[in-house]
Design a protein around this nucleic acid. Structure first.
Lengths: 338, 338
DNA sequence: CTGAAAGCGCTTACAG
DNA sequence: CTGAAAGCGCTTACAG
């Protein structure tokens, strides 16, 4: 009755079919839970599959008819906890929806980015999510979108584009942080860290806007450029301390810059919150237990990731929907540094 | 001559073949760079492909003959920078080798872990890399290995197993750190953070070993259990300060625990390095610019990731090789906290 | 309710 | 050096 035990070889639906005495069409149907097949038959098929140790070959299925269940997500800098948290949000949402994530890390390398994008296309990804590397030409987004694969850009919005986007309100966030410092009575407040780029421009705009609202003059001397990293923050704070000894308050480009600044302050025997008012930006998890706990602008990184994934999912369902955009709210989160 | 322009439809090798006036076999051959095809013909095929906007369908290729180029990596906690750094190391190595990474994040959820592992199997992954979630039963590793897919476990070694493994010398690392503190003249040194588990056991063993080498008695009162997180470190340090006010030195389960401890110390007006000697473990990037910069045990997370990936790659090439193991060396890295 | 047949886009012997 | 044919493991109309 039963087919003789096969020797090591991939078990396919035809093996299962033989074992269960049905056609492979029937097996395919029960595997996808079709209601067309009688319960009894379905049971027989399922136990045959189990007995044989059958493993569904998803790629084969995709080739014939099914859509792909892989979504590519390309991230620029996983070493920054902010992006790691965003990624976790994305991943969670995608997996919940039955997708699998093809992840790539560019390390801000535009050339590598082109390669991984292309690779995802070859994998026949059902969708692509991208946080563009720093110097990404606008044309890359354009051509990626033209592939016809659902596509969403997150965090970094490269100018006006027609692509779906999920990000946060950088300008408003920094406006809030700066205003908070100004209201606290600081005559001057600096802007610490970050390098030219879209996001930087937005954040600096928020800084300027807050200054203007209080009729304070903007001074380029109070903005301290640096890599958007801990190290950058460390250096920028040292520069600040050297150049503007009277300055006692600053808003940072992001949380890790603030961490670097905290480190520099500490080395000088200064404590943020009492000796210097410091605001971060992002609200990464780490800020709750830094030394001291950081006052920051909460943009909820994980939620941002989930929203970005939701947009992609929606685009997959409705390819012709209007442009989808999510701009997360930024709120002030006061802890001990300001 | 040229085929009439096709209407929106996937361009396949047969389209390219028609355009170039060759058979699809020839197209396939030139696409994979076979030397069998004459240069002139190859050029013609390539320009036809370009002209038509042909995209290679990797899944289809895999189905017929090629091996899969996707490798699944499942990570337990991406929110911990240590794992993010390890992942970056893995990703980099894999992409360099021409693979694509299917990433999944379990958040220490064993049930989810089973699901993502199964999913990777269905995707026909060429290999699987796993850092087991905290309460993973040993049997999971066994059965995953039995799938016959190259499989490497990293960071957390679940007891004696025959699987390939990449990790670091936790015992030696903590031994070094503890000894350093003892040599610095501290009568007592505590062990801070972490929860029962394989890695914890190894690290605690290093702690005990160092004590023993100096003929100091081990006291359970000096080990402060807590979640291996910033928050855990914060709480553990507060407990320590309350229960053992004379204790002035501790080695932490890992760097993020140390960060939490730094935060707790700071709140009490204490500065690590002068008021309290603290050692971390891992050497995540953040430690270089924490407040103050952390003395730690360097196990080089990124390198660990790269080595883990190398092991998998080697296993793919040599399925019958002996068990492959990498145990990274742990070295002392002294900064300002001890 | 179930089966026979065609086909997804590729690769791989096998001819020539 | 190149082509015709078979087939990877599945799904999807189409019959019955």
């Amino acid at each position: 009755m039963a087919t003789p035990p096969k020797i090591a070889r991939t078990i396919t639906i035809v093996d299962v079919a033989a074992e269960a005495n049905v056609s492979k069409s029937t097996v395919s149907l029960v595997l996808k839970g079709s209601p067309l097949i009688k319960g009894e038959t379905a049971d027989r098929v399922r136990s045959a599959a189990l007995k044989l140790g059958y493993v569904y070959n998803r790629r084969a299925g995709e080739l014939r008819g099914n859509a792909s269940n892989a979504i590519g997500v390309v991230i620029n800098d996983l070493m920054n906890p902010f992006f790691a948290e965003v990624l976790v949000g994305i991943e969670r949402k995608l997996v919940d929806a039955g997708y699998v994530v093809l992840m790539a890390h560019t390390g801000e390398d535009v050339g590598l980015q082109d390669k991984v994008l292309q690779s995802m296309r070859e994998q026949n990804a059902a969708g692509i999510m991208l946080c563009p590397a720093l110097k990404t030409p606008r044309s890359v987004l354009k051509s990626t979108q033209d592939w016809g694969i659902p596509f969403t850009v997150f965090v970094r919005n490269l100018g006006i584009g027609s692509y779906d986007f999920a990000g946060s309100d950088s300008e408003e966030g920094v406006y809030l942080a700066t205003t908070h410092l100004l209201n606290a009575g600081h005559a001057e407040v600096g802007f610490l860290g970050g390098q030219k780029g879209v996001v930087f421009t937005q954040r600096l705009a928020g800084y300027k806007k807050a200054l203007q609202a209080k009729r304070r003059a903007f001074s380029g001397d109070l903005v301290f450029y640096a890599n958007p990293s801990r190290e950058g923050g460390y250096e920028a704070m040292n520069t600040l301390l050297g150049q503007s000894p009277k300055l006692k308050a600053a808003v940072c480009y992001n949380d890790i810059v603030a961490f670097g600044a905290l480190s520099a302050l500490g080395e000088k025997g200064l404590r943020a919150g009492t000796d210097f008012a410091l605001m971060g930006f992002d609200n990464i998890l780490d800020t709750a237990h830094s030394n001291p706990p950081l006052s920051t602008v909460d943009i909820n990184p994980k939620e941002l990731g989930e929203q970005a994934a939701s947009i992609l999912l929606k685009r997959i369902r409705e390819p012709d929907a209007e442009r989808l955009v999510y701009i997360g709210q930024a709120t002030l989160l006061l802890r001990q540094t300001a």
